[in-house]
Design a protein around this nucleic acid. Sequence first.
DNA 1: CGGTTACACATGAACGTTCAAGTGATGCGT
DNA 2: ACGCATCACTTGAACGTTCATGTGTAACCG
Lengths: 180, 180
Amino acid sequence: MRMSAQGEPEAAEPHWLTADQLAAWRGFMNLLQRLPTALEWQLQRDAQLSFIEYYVLALLSDLPERRMRMSELAARANSELSRLSHMVGRLEKRGLLRREPDPCDGRYTHAILTDAGYAYLAEAAPGHVGRVRELFIDVLDPEELQTLRRCAEKVGARIDGSPEKGGTGRAENPVGQRGR
Amino acid sequence: MRMSAQGEPEAAEPHWLTADQLAAWRGFMNLLQRLPTALEWQLQRDAQLSFIEYYVLALLSDLPERRMRMSELAARANSELSRLSHMVGRLEKRGLLRREPDPCDGRYTHAILTDAGYAYLAEAAPGHVGRVRELFIDVLDPEELQTLRRCAEKVGARIDGSPEKGGTGRAENPVGQRGR
DNA sequence: CGGTTACACATGAACGTTCAAGTGATGCGT
DNA sequence: ACGCATCACTTGAACGTTCATGTGTAACCG
């Protein structure tokens, strides 16, 4: 990718990357593209769920009442509200989720994991976790995992601090809404 | 996400993650979701290109003749051939790419970066590289970058070695083709 | 009390991706 | 020389996501 200094002059000031930086970026980006695909494939085959569908069900399953506001759920899942709304509609049709207005404040809608959804998730979870172990956790040693965690926090904080869109409402962007 | 040992028994053997492993995974996964979105937003705003469109143009620009077989390009870009074909069709309409049969072997099609496409990429590159610097490179120190590079190589090798779909033809999967 | 404002969410159209099927070129065997 | 098999790629339909718009609820103000 055209990101390092080369012979041809460019219009803007050249904040090009060094060879080491470029190699790190390319390697990391390759991973960004391939790991989700690899995980997604196993989930589709075993449970007919996309990665984010699994994630949403899992977020709800962790809560005592297994319910959350749509806007909060969208923020937690790094998803736009419209996308989540469509997705929840599809999961409703499968009987895995349902929606109801917040009893305390009718402005809000809750997404609720059904009993069937909970059982479905419990069945899908071991395969997914096994796959995450196989492709990611067991490949790296504890120090590498800690470094990844630290790096993810630093980059995430930078994204949050960026005035341009990319944050998901944790810092200063409105909850769930992102421009495109 | 439901990936660590909890009170309720599960159907399959519990290869659940430890608390540290889960934290590392969640942090990393959060990054997997947010970094592409943040980069994509800047490219869309400045150049009306998606991340993979930029990547494809950049791959071609690095070659002396600025051309590559569609199947090879799909493999390099971690994309399915059908997706690449549609994408190249759209970029053709914008005058950034063109296609022609391989003169030596008519079974193959070459994607070729046009002069206009090259100029367009040269204009988009500084903004994109600046954004990668801002959100990723400059946030991490050289040791962290090297650790990320090593981790990406390890996980990538594991994905390649997995008999299940997720590899992209570098090891044993056919070039460009992936199941779903 | 009623009108206005702000916000959460749903919905439909447009767009990009995936899947399945079709087309064209080349190599091989008879 | 011809028929068949294989492969690369294209294409169209179906599906999921994004964008723009509309609807419903609650809070606020006069």
